[in-house]
Design a protein around this nucleic acid. Sequence first.
DNA 1: TAGGCCATCTGGTCCT
DNA 2: AGGACCAGATGGCCTA
Length: 203
Amino acid sequence: MDSVYSDIDSNSCDFFPHSDDEESRSSSASPGSSSCAAGSPQPEQPQKKRRRGRRSDGTVQVVKKNRRMKANDRERNRMHNLNDALEELRGVLPAFPDETKLTKIETLRFAHNYIWALSETIRIADLQGGKTGDAPLLLTSACLSDASSPGSSWSSSGSSSSSSSSSPPYCASSPGSPSAPEDYSYLQQDALFGFRSFVTGIY
DNA sequence: TAGGCCATCTGGTCCT
DNA sequence: AGGACCAGATGGCCTA
């Protein structure tokens, strides 16, 4: 037998089954929200209007619509939280010479490299018996140094959990990576153009 | 104008 | 059942 949903289900855009201009247009009027946009562009076929008979229980639709709106709201909050966390992360990372804000991906990659450099610094300091004189140098140059796994991508480096001192994935392929501490000047010079790309590993 | 980044909506899947 | 998480789609804004 036909359930109340029969109307809705066969219409792909199930939340607004009979969208004759009615209120259908998505919940929170906002940019980039074409009601049933996700997935199918739906070339507005003049298909037979299937809204005969019962209006498929308006209450069901209202309930669904409310549920969708709540889900949208939660999703929005979730993304806002994510962005807040990202913002906090930006605040903790060293500032860039150019004041421009790091993008999300840059922030993540920079953080990844930065953490790697920090741990590397600690490791070397330990090896040297607690001498940390070169630490600041290492922090930066480590991020510039070659990286034993060139071409490693974010995903492939996801396995970096294995070893702490394995590779700074996004420092890979830095053009002419300085190997000696003296090359630090190189870094400062580079700040003029490519520092950002260097540190984040994005070119 | 093309391309990059972003916010939002949406439906599916997994988890509690 | 409802919430969290995820990925795809879409449209707006900005910059080279």
